[in-house]
């Protein structure tokens, strides 16, 4: 009986220990990222990801950190490395039906496209739109998928001086989805509301 209790306690403390370790480390990674320590944040997320094989969230953030870092990177070679490393992580086919994952894939391909739009836009823009559309089909209430597609199309249409009112409606829809959104898992993606608010201002 006694050993049984000890075992139970060990089990609980063990699992709570792991839980808090995940949350503590994820928190640490987020603050590294916020303070601009991109590579350190990505490294920590890689460690969490390989320790938590069944959880897609650390890998998601690792790819996110690398992809967003590429936007501001001036050195072309480093930029290409960031995009490629993120792409390799995102290629994981187990996540083919994860709407959030597909949104990030679309962002990654957008990062790749804007490195050389003259030669890459033709091939990549249908692919990017396809990824967003699939993300919306999988989860119609995912505000990031709705927002991502609308933003991508607004950018293209602005270039051609075309009417963007349809896309602006989609941004509005994304905004209402954001307010209804309830995050379930710890650290599940919840970003994007600020971006939507910014875009809706530009729509008017």
């Amino acid at each position: 009986m006694k050993s049984f209790i000890i075992a139970i306690i060990c089990l609980i403390s063990g699992s709570t220990f792991a839980q808090s370790n995940f949350e503590k480390s994820m928190g640490q990674a987020m603050s590294l990222w916020q303070s601009g320590e991109t590579q350190k944040a990505a490294a920590l997320l890689e460690r969490i990801s390989q320790a938590e094989k069944d959880n897609w969230i650390p890998a998601y953030y690792q790819a996110m950190v690398l992809t967003t870092a590429s936007f501001s990177e001036k050195n072309k070679e480093t930029q290409a490395k960031y995009i490629q490393s993120a792409e390799e992580i995102l290629n994981n086919s187990a996540q083919d039906n994860n709407s959030e994952w597909l949104v990030l894939r679309a962002m990654n391909q957008t990062a790749l496209m804007i490195t050389d739009p003259m030669t890459k836009a033709k091939e990549l823009s249908p692919k990017i739109i396809g990824l967003y559309k699939k993300a919306i089909t999988l989860a119609p209430n995912n505000p990031r998928a709705v927002l991502g597609l609308a933003e991508f199309q607004i950018n293209a249409k602005k270039y051609f001086n075309q009417d963007t009112s349809k896309e602006c409606e989609d941004v509005k829809k994304a905004l209402s989805l954001f307010s209804e959104e309830k995050t379930t898992a710890p650290f599940a993606p919840s970003w994007g509301k600020d971006r939507a608010e910014q875009l809706i201002k530009e729509c008017k």
């Binding site: 590579q39 490294a43 920590l44 460690r47 390989q50």
Partner: peptide, 9 residues
């Protein structure tokens, strides 16, 4: 260390 959180940069 493989499979753990323990590591550094």
């Amino acid at each position: 260390i493989e499979g753990t959180y323990d590591g550094g940069t």
